[in-house]
Design a protein around this nucleic acid. Structure first.
Lengths: 281, 281
DNA sequence: CGCAAGTTTGACGCTGCTCAATCACTGTGG
DNA sequence: CCACAGTGATTGAGCAGCGTCAAACTTGCG
């Protein structure tokens, strides 16, 4: 089940989580204990009182470590639990009849993957791991009970789903309208901004992202060969550097300008703070 | 406000709504009165009792007719109401700095466009109308109140959002991985299946869809010229026919086979019926 | 040492884009 | 009734971004 051999063969490291100097941050070089990941995430949408916070924490009691390339959720399986990413990076994908793989998006710590099967019962895509990760299993039954008991928690989950939709709209625009350089630049910008929001990295000073060029290609709908050529231009211009599945962003400002990136749609903490009062004061 | 001149200049007709022979259907050639549109939609996800049904109906009291090319919601506006499509077709889109337009998706009768600004406060895209339509305005305040009072309604809205996400995933795959013919075929399949679900048309016997080739191009991320060339192949093969913004599907089976279309992700009535019991019995 | 994954490079061709013109249809104003 | 304008559809020529195929190289691991 834990396909350790494949992970070793691939030789991936645990995602480098740089320390981030925030007094309140319980973050360090160990894998985060993650107890408050989901609480924090939901709290950025609605204010939760102590009872509600405890209810959320109670959901995430069952934790487990996985290694890179493990599969959390399999297509057309009927899962009885949702997965909460505590540390690491997961990604959603599906193979087509043609054999091509489309990657739909990436899940960072605090993301829930995904409550979709509450309705569908079966999942329509796979969820895999890019690197060693810690994951909390949340029983769907518990989740439903908690949602019913605490409407504000259900509200927050609805909002997470709506943010997901906004991210996918942006992704659609990215894939539909931009050329290869812009696509790649935009992708790195988004991931960097989201990492930054979770306080796992600092924008512009060495965001490290564990990815192969093949994964980039399948995310963007390009071929590995073409991705490689575009990336080499980025490397020559000192915008990105990489070695063996680890990308480092050297020049975030230039990346945003190539992509025309505006982080607004991500509804990150900073941007949310401005509007939340009006919306939910 | 009602830009009648533009509509007339464009010469669009009201969407042809073919009668559909279902005994229980309150449908005819007039524009549907739409009172129960939203009730029906939400009911496909959760069972609503009489009180809840009345609460939903009460939301949709303020109705209004619009003509083709009217704009329902403008980007970066701060709307105080959501729009429910009662009849007609709306679409979401955004213009980029480059001047190109990306169309994110289409809204059919019963769709809510969109509760997103409950969180964002400002809307990140425009919503326009493809043809003359009837729309109910729903105050966001009322919506929030109703959601809080009736958790099952909030649950159903969450599910609508999740289905939207599934549609967008499919769209992402469509735009990212398929060639122009497959993209177009897939698009027509999806729209036909969704129309069919709302009982506005009959698959395979003349689904009429009001669209220009320019709109198709902006949906698929292609150019008008290329869309035209692909469509002409479809016309030669008697798969589609069209004249002045009205497309007719002649050979739905062939279209699905070109696209590799599987309607499962739409969670339509038929497919839902199978799984709902297990999920919400 | 030899394998497996991933990266890199080159040659070549096709899909889909650009630019530009023409046609067809419909409604308008005279 | 007819010329005109506006929108959308259609066609052609030429080009480029990106894909395909194929091979070599690099690195980590058994």
């Amino acid at each position: 089940m834990h396909d350790i051999d494949r992970q070793l063969a691939r030789g991936r490291d645990v995602l480098v989580q740089r320390s981030y100097s925030t007094p309140s941050s319980a973050h360090d070089n160990r894998i985060s204990d993650g107890t408050t990941r989901l609480v924090n995430r939901l709290s950025s949408f609605v204010h939760l009182d102590d009872e509600e916070r405890q209810a959320v924490v109670a959901l995430t009691l069952s934790r487990r470590r996985f290694v890179a390339m493990d599969t959390l959720i399999r297509e057309s399986s009927v899962p009885d639990r949702a997965c909460l990413i505590l540390s690491g990076v997961a990604f959603r994908y599906r193979y087509q009849a043609s054999g091509r793989r489309q990657i739909f998006g990436y899940l960072l710590p605090g993301d829930l993957c995904d409550p979709h099967f509450i309705i569908t019962n079966t999942c329509d895509h796979n969820v895999g791991l890019l690197c060693d990760s810690e994951v909390a299993a949340i029983s769907l039954l518990d989740l439903k009970t908690t949602m019913s008991k605490f409407p504000k928690i259900e509200r927050a989950l609805l909002m997470m789903a709506l943010v997901d939709a906004a991210i996918m709209r942006e992704c659609l625009l990215n894939i539909g309208q931009r050329d290869a350089s812009q696509k790649l630049a935009h992708f790195f910008c988004e991931l960097a901004a989201r990492f930054h929001d979770r306080q796992d990295t600092i924008i512009g000073s060495g965001v490290t992202i564990p990815l192969t060029q093949g994964e980039l290609a399948d995310t963007m709908g390009l071929t590995v060969v073409h991705v490689n050529r575009v990336l080499q231009r980025f490397r020559r211009d000192r915008i990105l550097s990489w070695s063996r599945c680890h990308f480092d962003i050297l020049d975030y400002p230039r990346l945003t300008s190539i992509a025309g990136f505006d982080a607004g749609y991500l509804r990150l903490r900073e941007t949310l703070a401005e509007t939340r009062t009006a919306s939910y004061g």
